[in-house]
Amino acid sequence: MSQNTILEIKNVSKVFHTKDKDVEAIRNVSFNVKEGEFISIIGASGCGKTTLLRLIAGLEKNYGGDILLDGKKVEKAGLDRGVIFQEHRLLPWLTVEENLTIGLDGTKKELQDLAREYLKKVDLENFEKVYPSQLSGGMAQRVSIARALMRRPRILLLDEPLGALDALTRMNMQAEIDRIREEEKTTMIMVTHDIDEAIFLGDKVVVMKPRPAEVDQIISIKIPRPRLRNSEDFAFYRNTITNMFNHSIMDYAI
C-alpha cells in the first residue's frame, strides 16, 4: 500500500533562550508521516515531545531544520493543522455549538447543520445548546476534537489529549479516537506518556529520549485493529517499549 508522505520532519532542533542560558529542547529529530497514518510519540514527561508537536502546530517558532507539510515549510499555526490540547480549551461563555463554529463563515443554518453533523461523529447528539461547564471532561474533549475535525485539517495534532481523564474514561476515549480515525481517515500525531495508549492507537510509535529530545526508535505496530490490550502481540510491543524506557527511567529515579 503506497501512501503519500504528508509531513516531513527533517533534522528538527529547537533551543529555548532564557535570560542566563540556552536550553536545548529538541535535537535532530527526523521522521516522515504518511497520509492516514497515526503516529504516537511517547517519552518521559518533560522530554520535549510536546515542544515537537507545538513546532508542527506552528505555535513555537524559530527552529532548526525543516518541518514540511505537503512540501511547504511550517512557519505559523493554521487551519490545515487541527490541534487538540491537553485541556479542552473550549470557551466557557459560548455554547457547544458556538464553540464549534467560532470564526467559520456560512449562514446560521449551514453552521448549525455542520455543528450537528460533527457532534454526531463524536457521539454527542443534542448537546448543541449546552455550555462547556455542563459537560464532563471526556465529553468536553470530544467537542474539542469535533471543533478541530470540522475545519477539515490535513493532520490532527493531539497533545496528551486524555491526560486529564480518569482511567476508564480514558480507555473509552481511546476507542473513540480509534473509531474517528477509522471513519475520517484523518492523519494524526499524538503525544502521550502512556505506553498502552501509544500502542493501542499508533501505526507507528516514535520513542523519544529525553533532554534534549531525540528519536530513540520508531516501532511499527503490526496488530490488526481494533486492538485488544490483553492479546499476546500487544504484550510483546508493551514489553519491547517498556524495556526501552527502563534504562531512562532508571536515570530519572533518584
Binding site: L59, K76, A77, G78, R81, V83, F85, G103, R147
Partner: peptide, 13 residues
C-alpha cells in the same frame, strides 16, 4: 495565553 494560542490555531480574525 491559552486563548491567544487557540485564536492562532483556529485562524480567528
Amino acid at each position: 495565553a491559552e486563548y491567544f494560542e487557540l485564536a492562532e490555531v483556529l485562524e480567528l480574525k
